[in-house]
Design a protein around this nucleic acid. Structure first.
Lengths: 256, 256
DNA sequence: CATGTATAACTGGTATACAAGATATTTTAC
DNA sequence: GTAAAATATCTTGTATACCAGTTATACATG
C-alpha cells in the first residue's frame, strides 16, 4: 500500500563523528568522545537525501514500522530521525494518523531565494576584501574540478562541487557559518530545482558563472563579484504557474 | 549535585496548535487536526526559554530523570525536547556522559550579527517599496506600545514588542518567513545580550531607533531606512574581551 | 602516602509494550 | 441497493525496561 523507498539501508551502520562537546564548568567531559554512531543519524540522512532529491515525492507516506523493519532497528531512533525532518519542514507528522513527505511551500521558495542572495552577497563582498591567496587558489581549483566533472557528465559530483564552491566563498569571506545557514534555507528550493530542471547541460554555464564570481573577487572588484553572484543565483526562476497543472499535489500554495 | 532549574513546570499541560498538515495525493487527512498537545513541546519551550534568558547558565547539567520527575512524564518526550535543543546548539549531548547547556560560541555570534543585518536590510528595503498604509499604521502602533512599555519599565513585554516590530517590518516587505529565519539565527546572540547588557535604560533609545526606521519607510527613502536599521542593529557590539575574564566558562572561543 | 585498578553508580541509547485517536472495512438496518 | 453504524486495523504518542559506555569512588598495592 504505502509507496516504499528503494532498498538501500545505507552501507555504514557505525560512523559519523559528533560535534565537539563543551566541557561543563566544574570538572567533566573534556575530550572528544569517540564517535558513537547514532542510528537515528543514518536513517535521518537517508530519508533527508531521498526527500531532497525528490525520489520520495511530496505526499508519500513515511511509515515508521516499515523503516524499522528495513534497517532492523527499533522505532525509537526512527522516530528521532522523523522528528528531525519534521522540524526542517520536510515531512508533516499528523498525530495518530500518519507521516507524509511535505509539499513544497511556494511562499517559502520566494523568500528562501531572496534570503540566500542577501547572505551570499555579504560573503562575496567580504571575500573580495580579505580572501587570502591560498583561498583564491583553492577556489580556482574547485572551478577546475567543476569543469572536469561537467565534461565527464557526473551531475551528482558536480552538484557537490557546486556547493563546495559556495562554501569556499563564504569561508574566504570569514563567514563559514553563513553557508551553513544558506544550506538550511536551500532545502526546499533544492527540491524544487531537482523537480523542475535537471541541470544536465546547465553545468558548463554554471562553471562560467562561478568563474565570473571568482574573477571579481581576485580583481578585488566587489561590485563585479556581487553582480556576478546575483546573476548566478537569479538563474533559478520560480515559475510556479507552469508546474501548477503538472504536479498540483506537489506544491503548497496558500500560506502555511 | 546537579544545578536544578526553578520550579515552574509551565502552567498549561494541554495547548499549542499544530501546523497545517499536507494532505497526501490520494485521499487522506485534509482538515486541521485538533491540537494534540505534545508534552515534548512544553518541556522544550520551558528549557528553551530558561537557556535563552540565561537563567540556565552554560555548563549546567540537564538531567533527563530530573525533568521526568518534575513534569510527571516519561523520558521519551523529555528526550525529544532535548534533541530539539541540541539541534539548535543550545545544549550539548555527550553520549553516556551527560547533557549540558552549551557555551555561547563566539565565532557564531559575529556571523549571526552579520547575517541578521543582511536579512533585515532586505526586509527594510522591500518594506520601503511596498508597505501598505495599514501596515505602516500597524508599525506606528507597535512603536507607541513600545513607548508605553518603556515608560512602565516592563522589560519583558518591551522585548516582545521589539520583536513584533521587526517581524512587522519583514511582513510589510512581504517576507514574513525571513523574520522566522532571523529568530533562529538570533538565539545565541540573544543569550549574549541577556548576559552582558540588561537593557534597562536602553529602551527609550531603542524606541527612537525604531522610529527612525519607520520614518524612512514612510518617506519611501530606502537608504535612510536601511541606514537607520543598520545603526540600530550595530548597537550590539560583541566586545568579548571584556567578558573573557568575567565568565571564561560561558563562552566557546575556538572554532566549533 | 601515592598510584593504579577494580567496582559501583551514574549517564544517554535502544528496544518493546501499551494507549489513544484516525481511518478503512465490514456489518446491519431500512 | 443504500446508508449509517459498529468494528477491526491502521497510525503515532507515551511509558517502561534494559543495554552499554562513562565517571567517580573505594580499595588494594607498591
Amino acid at each position: 500500500m504505502a509507496v516504499s523507498l528503494d532498498e538501500r539501508p545505507s552501507a555504514e551502520i557505525r560512523s559519523r563523528k559528533q560535534r565537539a562537546p563543551n566541557s561543563p564548568p566544574r570538572g567533566a567531559p573534556d575530550r572528544h568522545a569517540g564517535q558513537a554512531a547514532r542510528n537515528s543519524e543514518i536513517v535521518y540522512r537517508d530519508l533527508h537525501d531521498a526527500i531532497v532529491d525528490v525520489s520520495l515525492v511530496p505526499g508519500t507516506p513515511i511509515v515508521e514500522k516499515e523503516i524499522t523493519e528495513r534497517y532492523g532497528i527499533s522505532r525509537t531512533p526512527v522516530r528521532e530521525a522523523i522528528l528531525k525532518l519534521a522540524e526542517e519542514q520536510l515531512v508533516d507528522v499528523i498525530p495518530k494518523s500518519g507521516t507524509f513527505v511535505a509539499r513544497i511551500p511556494v511562499a517559502v521558495l520566494q523568500e528562501a531565494i531572496v534570503a540566500r542572495r542577501a547572505l551570499e552577497e555579504v560573503c562575496v563582498r567580504e571575500a573580495t576584501a580579505k580572501a587570502s591567496k591560498s583561498q583564491l587558489m583553492e577556489l580556482r581549483a574547485i572551478i577546475q574540478r567543476e569543469y572536469e566533472l561537467s565534461a565527464a557528465g557526473d551531475e551528482h559530483a558536480f552538484h557537490e562541487a557546486d556547493n563546495v564552491f559556495h562554501a569556499g566563498v563564504a569561508a574566504a569571506g570569514g563567514y563559514p557559518g553563513i553557508w551553513t545557514m544558506v544550506e538550511k534555507i536551500r532545502l526546499q528550493v533544492e527540491r524544487y530545482r531537482r523537480l523542475t530542471l535537471p541541470q544536465h547541460g546547465r553545468m558548463k554555464l554554471i562553471v562560467a558563472e562561478h568563474e565570473a564570481v571568482l574573477d571579481g573577487i581576485e580583481n578585488r572588484d566587489a561590485n563585479a563579484a556581487v553582480a556576478a553572484m546575483n546573476s548566478h543565483l537569479n538563474k533559478l526562476r520560480i515559475d510556479i504557474a507552469t508546474f501548477r497543472d503538472l504536479w498540483p499535489d506537489y506544491f503548497l500554495f496558500d500560506r502555511k
